[in-house]
């Protein structure tokens, strides 16, 4: 095992995914690659608030995510774990799987809860997409979500 890819979405899953991915990377003396898939830019931003302000806020968000990702990577490097960070834009599942393939990841580390803003719908589709589509092994980290049990059940 040479390359561990950690899927980072800045949700409540992230700290657990980072911890698990770091441990795996250390155990296998591998390299850790943090990948965050940002949502694609909206093609039509509408007239209401003024398209340029929407684009500006999107750009700010991307810069913020990029900075956070770099901070995580720097933190891990400080601990002696060789880490790279990558922010890519596109449809979540396909982009993640494409990156895993082109980076020749040996394993994808991902949280089994907490992906996507609209839990009930998106959480399931990302998990299912990665589960069915990944060519390399996928290490699912159970996320004890802060959400009530009843809500967390039956959504992944």
């Amino acid at each position: 095992m040479k390359q561990v890819l950690a899927a980072i979405d800045f949700s409540e899953a992230t700290s657990e995914v980072l911890r698990c991915a770091a441990e795996l990377t250390e155990a296998f003396e591998a390299t850790l690659i943090l990948v965050h898939v940002a949502a694609p830019n909206p093609e039509f931003v509408g007239y209401e608030a003024g398209p340029s302000s929407v684009r500006d806020s999107r750009a700010r968000e991307l810069r913020r995510e990029h900075r956070m990702l770099q901070e995580y990577a720097e933190d891990l490097r400080q601990r002696g774990i060789p880490t790279k960070a990558l922010l890519v834009q596109g449809p979540t599942v396909q982009t993640l799987l494409d990156e895993a393939r082109s980076l020749r990841a040996d394993v994808i580390v991902i949280g089994s809860r907490g992906h996507g803003a609209v839990r009930r719908v998106l959480l399931g589709s990302v998990s299912r997409g990665v589960l069915g589509g990944a060519l390399c092994p996928v290490h699912w980290v159970p996320i004890r979500a802060a959400a009530p049990l009843g809500q967390a059940k039956g959504v992944a």
């Binding site: 394993v107 069915g132 092994p137 996928v138 290490h139 699912w140 980290v141 959504v155 992944a156």
Partner: peptide
């Protein structure tokens, strides 16, 4: 497709490594 794996991933008390 992976209906068993899907449920296990969702409900397992420990990490799950899925392979193909």
């Amino acid at each position: 497709l992976g209906s068993v794996a899907e449920r296990v991933v969702r409900e397992a008390p420990c990490p799950v490594l899925t392979v193909k």
